[in-house]
Nucleic acid binder design. Structure first.
Lengths: 213, 213, 213, 213
DNA sequence: GATGAATGAGTATTCATTCAT
DNA sequence: TATGAATGAATACTCATTCAT
């Protein structure tokens, strides 16, 4: 019995060790991807920075694109979860569907401003494909699920909207695409300056989906 | 003098020859970029398809990214010029600023639908950077200039708009980003189905920039 | 004493377990060697197919070539032992030395036809070196020993033969070499078609070793 | 015109240069294959020994097995052509079909004895597959063609033979297989000692194919 | 004995770029 | 101008072997 316990303790340690290795690899990869770009990052680079042997990389990921996808899903998931959690925390002040969406958008943009590397990485990848397919891969840690939040907001809304899926798609595409240009290249202006117009444009999009009574 | 004449005659032919070679190279590069992707296309590939020696490539372009940029400017320029020309041809029927912008957007989307390879290539490259910097490099063949068209339309409008530059930026980002997903992956739906909502969203954006009287 | 008994009991089970593991490893190796070839078979492959950890492989064999040699000796031994047993079973009908050798050759060829993977594996390895050195390593399970059979047949023969060792060598080389080509590639024809000529050729070889009176 | 001549001279040199490079590569590969074995020879090894850059290898051969096949065809071709030429040179003294075949076999065995590396390389590859497929790839330099020689010898023979193709197959398999063991490992004896018995065995095989009148 | 995570040397192959012709 | 042979750095991926548990 003691042996069994020891084994369990051991395998617990091994398990922890593996998790640490994976974390080291993903962290190293993220740093390199955002600084040098994916193309110029080699597996040797990632392994070296993670202080791990080259072969070890292949115990955790099948290739560069495997780790990239893992990162995309994780980073994108974190962004959405964080925004959802923030809204849940002060649900009282935001009433209408429009206000809720704008709150979420604003929060996501703020996250982008705070950590521009995440925009560089997700760049033009934070789009519908990821949202739809990879997001589910990352479980909401705190029980707040972005998609459920959106559906609930729609259900609670007095105003009816056509094609809510398409509306969400267009908003996400606009935010990610505009953020890339504004945050990374200040084109056509800084995100600080762009944000009000961007949020108003989102409001414009939302209104264009209202069912007129 | 005879020598000079000979040279001129030669250089005339040579000039033509050079243009043909450059055209062959860009055409080959476009085909390969859109079918295999830029990363998997080598200079040897391009030269082979253009029926030109590998060394010759370097007489016309400095590297793969040089020819890519040349292509982006050219292809994007052609799209905008074509749209501008189309609007000029039937300027009578479209009156308001909103209508003009929607006409241009609709025309560009139709061009994308007709030739999806161009969306794949420009994809997420048809962004503000290109629009602002590279577009000018391509002269409007028929004297119709997209930027001038936009400025004129603004000037002729009864309605006043805040930050017209930002408005145009957001519209272009939305169109190119949404086209990529819809046309290439039918996500979240086909472009046929998306187009009405997309145009209405653009209208929503435009209205959000109106100066309320 | 109790401890000793326990140990014995354990080592009995352990002994069985070890044999099963070794059997699993050799069986897995044979399958892989004959399907993918030795070069493309890794120790990881063998361990995985044997459902054993990679490190365990090294408890039984020193490397890939060690297990290959073990397999060659075993498989070749089995072939010769089976042929010998078959001849012993119907010794009455085959009288002369020539007939005995041809019976053995025929039986071995039939075994090859029945299981072509064995030809692929032994192929050009079933040569004199193995025959002479490794075969002894495999004990004849049923007390029938090929080499003894051969010596006895010679002793009982009315006809005298020069260099019986060389004669046997040439026959074995011819059979294994021809079988490889005919059975695996049907070159120059199927083994069915080749067999009569092959057996007659063996007869020709045997006669060329006869001491003329 | 002078330019054209110069170009021709140049391209002649270039052509020569290429031939020299290919020769250097094949020669280096042969040395390494026979000393270290094919498996332990890397393309880097071959290139280094040929005093050529690694990449250059791939301008001439697609991979290790490509150059191996090229070598097999060439070396095997040379062996057969040399034997054929030798027989043609003293056709007078050898009369019967049997004598002709034995002369060729003896000559080939002597070549093997003289250059054992060639046996190590062709080893068990100098078999029917090569003979039938690769031999034709190498043109007989001096107009003496082994296969024609064989056919002519059959036609001129007073004795008739069944299945001459199969007969030739069995002889080639026996010679190459026995040479490998005898020359490289002196098993079961040196080739000097084996040769008489081997030739007599071949005679025995030939006789087993005679059509009895 | 058994495990399987970790290692890092080894290898094939690609490809941008140069340069003699 | 045009060519294409040559280069060799760069890179992805494999795998035998070890060793702490």
């Amino acid at each position: 019995m003691e042996i069994d316990l020891a084994k369990k303790r051991n395998s617990g340690k091994a398990e922890q060790n593996k998790k640490a290795k994976k974390e080291a690899l993903t962290s190293a990869a993220f740093d390199l991807f955002t600084s040098k770009g994916i193309n110029k990052t080699s597996i040797a680079d990632i392994a070296e920075r993670a202080k791990v042997a080259k072969g070890t990389f292949y115990l955790y990921f099948s290739d560069k694109y495997d780790i990239r996808n893992f990162l995309i899903a994780n980073k994108a998931g974190a962004i959405f979860h964080k925004a959802s959690a923030a809204m849940n925390a002060r649900t009282s002040s935001v009433k209408t569907f429009e206000d809720k969406i704008l709150f979420l958008a604003s929060n996501i943009i703020d996250q982008f401003i705070e950590d521009p590397t995440i925009v560089r990485f997700l760049s033009k990848n934070l789009s519908w494909g990821i949202f739809k397919h990879d997001l589910n891969a990352v479980p909401a840690e705190n029980g707040v699920d972005f998609r459920k939040l959106y559906t609930d907001a729609l259900a609670q809304s007095d105003v009816q909207y056509r094609e809510p899926e398409v509306m969400l798609f267009l908003i996400i595409e606009l935010v990610s695409s505009a953020s890339y240009s504004a945050i990374l290249f200040r084109e056509p202006c800084s995100m600080q300056d762009l944000k009000p117009s961007l949020l108003e444009s989102i409001r414009g999009i939302i209104r264009s989906f209202q069912n007129c009574p």
